[in-house]
């Protein structure tokens, strides 16, 4: 049954996933074309000096990927939940012979796994190429600054799921404001930032909203309007 449920989620999200992963890969490709060009023009040592010790704004070669995780979270979330919200099709899903909580969390689980898979493809490629051009230290610096952005994508996905299930438009709007300010906290960091000490706090902020689906779906099932 769960596989059939996943089949439905896959039909909804596959094209959006494809395009967002393609966009991510295109950005990664562009970044490393630029890096390759710089290495050729300036030489490896000088370019690495630039990256490590140059004026920061001029040397964040990977700035473009900052909002890619956010875009992925939004794409997976919207493609998965908008078709369910239109005409309240979620009623069909909740009518399937499974416990409502299981159904809802399997959907959420699918989206989360898809998000992780897209992260793996795009950022796996990024780090593979990064290691070809830079020493481990640079990849580590990028990874630590990237972690909040990745978590931001997760947070936005869970918030979209929660907001979609809310039956009342006004409260959807209010949760939207909460979501905006929540997600904003993940994107205030710069491109070389030591985030290790705040990752636990950000991880809590990203994963707590995954429970919120239980609250809004309860309101939906009880017929709040």
């Amino acid at each position: 049954m769960i596989l059939h449920l996943f089949y439905k989620e896959w039909l909804k999200t596959r094209w959006f996933l494809f395009f967002v992963v393609l966009l991510g890969l295109a950005i990664v490709t562009y970044i490393f074309l630029d890096v390759d060009n710089n290495v050729r023009m300036k030489g490896s040592f000088n370019y690495l000096m630039n990256v490590f010790y140059g004026i920061p704004q001029a040397n964040y070669y990977h700035s473009l990927i900052k909002y890619v995780p956010l875009l992925m979270g939004v794409c997976v979330g919207l493609s998965q939940y908008v078709p369910e919200v239109i005409d309240k099709r979620i009623k069909l899903t909740l009518h399937l012979p499974m416990h409502n909580t299981v159904t809802l969390y399997m959907m959420l689980c699918f989206g989360f796994l898809m998000l992780l898979a897209s992260y793996a493809v795009v950022f796996g490629t990024f780090f593979y190429l990064n290691n070809l051009y830079f020493p481990f230290e640079e990849s580590w610096a990028v990874l630590t600054s990237l972690m909040p952005w990745l978590l931001g994508g997760v947070a936005v996905y869970f918030m979209i799921a929660m907001i979609s299930m809310e039956p009342n438009l006004f409260y959807q709007f209010l949760y939207g404001i909460v979501a905006f300010f929540l997600v904003k906290q993940f994107y205030i960091g710069m491109e070389h930032a030591d985030t290790r000490h705040i990752i636990p706090a950000l991880a809590i902020m990203a994963f707590v909203p995954c429970t919120a689906l239980l609250y809004t779906s309860y309101r939906f099932i009880k017929g709040e309007r």
């Binding site: 909460v178 300010f181 929540l182 906290q185 902020m205 707590v208 909203p209 429970t211 919120a212 239980l214 609250y215 779906s217 309860y218 309101r219």
Partner: peptide, 22 residues
């Protein structure tokens, strides 16, 4: 019951975000 406990968790998260934003 679960939904109400989850609501409290979300309220606490919103308190935290509120303490940044407000």
């Amino acid at each position: 019951m679960t939904a109400k406990v989850v609501r409290i968790i979300m309220v606490l998260l919103t308190v935290y975000i509120g303490s940044i934003v407000i």
